[in-house]
Simulated assay, not measured.
Amino acid sequence: MPVTLEEIARAAGVSRGTVDRALHDRGRIRPEVAAEIKKLALEMGYQPSRAGKALAMSGKKIKIGVILQYMETPFMMQTLKGVQEGKQEVESLGGIVQICEIEKVRPDKVIKLMEDMRRQGFQGIALTPSENPELKKVISKYCKEYGIPIVMMNADLEDTGRLCFVGQDNYQSGRTAAGLMGEITGGKGQVGVITGEVSNPGLKARRNGFTEELQKCYPHIQVAAVCYSHDEEEEAARATEQLLVQYPQLTGIYVTGHGVSGVCRVLKKAGKDGKIRMIANDFLEENKKWLKEGTINFLIGQDARTQGYEPVMILFRLLFDQIKPEKELLHTEIAIKTRYNI
């Protein structure tokens, strides 16, 4: 027998109305509650009865494209799972979702894929952007001239005319890291920042939020250096080794993105784990291991599933139901974990 909304409500400990709002994305409901209900419904085998809409939709030929950069990083692999969930839902209704994966930063390839999608009649595109003047121009042209809505995910380019952004408030995440660093270092000392690709706007926002908040609230903490790992573990390890040599009094390290294990291995080998305070991002299994061991003091997490799933569904709702997103900035939660609550 098919799973009912009442059964899902009982399993989730909420009302039937809450389940209905969560599964159909209507009404006011906290994003984390909606995500848990959708996950539970999927596990229980719930199949939405939208045959009428699926039949009507087949005539609309809705086609959504997704372009993901930085696919060598574990976090983007988590985001991909959310995209695939959205693809499965849209395609169950007769639509088409095409996912294109790109390793590293390749704005030229993003532009080519966008043009391919436009020529093939795709009506909406979700993508992870990078700081590139030509890519910005192309995105603006698609939004303003071609009328193809673009949803940014994971990182944002605000001045492009994009429909909306889904992801963490990266600047605020950096400020959060600065506040934590200020507390665990006693508000003084030298800290290093290890970040990824120069052209990643999300990591740039975190770095800026971190350094500006330290300048404002913790003037006795000096940012000794900002190092770029280009999202490579070994590059992050080498950057850490250089920091330890150049700044023997280093008191803290903030890692804005990928490369955490490389940093932790060097600190452990040098006998500095637990002595040099460390803050990193994303609740990856490897990162959680270092957190439990005490090499990392705090992990700042973001909702990878939502960042992948919601852009697909936002475009679907816009193209099928003409429902625009409620806000331009759809920020996911900034979560903090320690070894005691992981």
Rank of each mutant, 00 (worst) to 15 (best):
T4D: 03
E6W: 11
A12P: 05
G13Q: 04
G17D: 02
T18Y: 09
T18F: 08
V19W: 12
D20T: 06
R21F: 08
L23Y: 14
G27T: 10
R28Y: 05
E36A: 14
E36C: 10
K38G: 14
A56M: 13
I64A: 03
Q69D: 11
E72K: 13
F75C: 06
Q78H: 14
L80P: 02
K81R: 13
G86Y: 14
L93P: 06
L93Q: 11
I99L: 14
C100M: 14
I102A: 06
K104T: 10
R106P: 01
K112F: 01
K112I: 07
M114F: 04
M117V: 09
A126D: 07
E131H: 03
L135F: 01
K137H: 05
I150M: 09
G161Y: 00
L163M: 15
F165R: 09
V166E: 14
Y171H: 12
Y171R: 15
A177V: 07
G179S: 13
G179N: 07
G182D: 13
E183I: 12
I184E: 09
I194T: 05
N200I: 06
G202P: 07
N208G: 06
G209K: 01
T211L: 02
E213Y: 05
Q215W: 12
I221E: 02
A236S: 01
L243G: 05
Q246V: 10
T256H: 09
G259P: 10
S261I: 08
R265L: 15
G271C: 05
K275E: 08
W290L: 01
K292Q: 14
E293D: 12
I296Y: 00
F298W: 00
F298N: 04
Q302C: 00
A304N: 14
G308L: 06
I314M: 02
I314S: 09
F316I: 10
Q322K: 11
P325K: 02
E326K: 15
I334M: 11
I342M: 11
